[in-house]
């Protein structure tokens, strides 16, 4: 469904992603691992289309359509929805209003908020003064309204307390299992997700189908996400380097 080919991306004049390729199949939950600063968030921000992330080379295909240079909202229309690691403060914009608009007026913010224990945040300005965990829950609340078909989640569990993590994990599960409304996504092929995680906790709620490990701005290896996680736990990210050596096209970057 999502096909990334030889992507090179610059941020602030600095090349961050190098010749990166990966794919997310319809109905698949794909997991992204990698050490701090390896470029995971950069990849998600680029897929969503934020203009600070400049694609220098390569392409992003969604359901066969080239979206590499498409505006953010066009990508949202085609079914991509993202939970950002560090979303901006929107002073003066109430969460309630954003949830309503994200849901195209078809959702009741109060009902959705109830399910995530977010009722008291509805009148607050989006992200302003939100704690780390509150930001995650607010992002999920917005995504639940938005009903995307390709979910990009940047560390959904980080900073979330033990009780909320269960609610949040189940919500992600619900969103992935829920009805698909996006053009180009055939009902039976299902929704897809690309999830960044360090701890793998989110995998208790959504089964990961495929995993990638990123190192130094590119994909180092791929495999079964649980196995990758176990390996990272045991060996740290050293294993990355070794995987990487197996990939001829990145050797020159070392």
């Amino acid at each position: 469904m999502l096909e990334i080919k030889n992507l090179t991306v610059e941020v602030g004049g600095k090349e961050i992603l190098h010749d990166l390729s990966l794919s997310v199949k319809a109905g698949y939950t794909t997991v992204l691992f990698g050490p701090n600063g390896s470029g995971k968030s950069t990849l998600l921000m680029t897929i969503m289309g934020f203009s600070e992330y400049k694609v220098k080379n390569g392409s992003i295909l969604l359901n066969g359509e080239d979206i590499t240079h498409m505006p953010v909202n066009e990508r949202a229309k085609r079914g991509i929805g993202m939970m950002m690691q560090r979303p901006p403060n929107l002073t003066g914009v109430r969460l309630k209003d954003l949830v309503r608009i994200a849901g195209k007026g078809e959702v009741d913010p109060a009902v959705l908020a109830e399910g995530l224990d977010m009722t008291r945040f509805l009148e607050r300005d989006v992200n302003v003064g939100f704690s780390g965990g509150e930001i995650k829950r607010s992002e999920i609340l917005q995504l639940e309204a938005q009903k995307p078909c390709l979910l990009l989640l940047d560390e959904p569990e980080s900073g979330v307390d033990m009780v909320s993590i269960e609610k949040l994990g189940l919500k992600v599960h619900d969103i992935l299992q829920g009805q698909s409304h996006c053009a180009g996504w055939r009902e039976k092929s299902g929704k897809a997700a690309l999830i960044i995680t360090h701890t793998g906790q989110i995998l208790d709620y959504v089964e990961g189908d495929r995993g990638y490990v990123m190192c130094d701005g590119t994909v180092a290896c791929s495999g079964n996400p649980r196995e990758l996680l176990a390996e990272i736990r045991k060996m740290g990210y050293n294993e990355c380097i070794r995987c990487k050596l197996k990939r001829p096209n990145v050797v020159e970057n070392l």
């Binding site: 914009v93 954003l98 608009i101």
Partner: peptide, 23 residues
């Protein structure tokens, strides 16, 4: 980044700017 954040929720650029300005 604020405009694009709203656009990532499906708002057009004009709608996003309007919402931020009103806020």
């Amino acid at each position: 980044d604020q405009v694009e954040y709203l656009m990532s929720r499906g708002l057009s650029e004009e709608e996003a700017v309007g919402m931020i300005v009103r806020g």
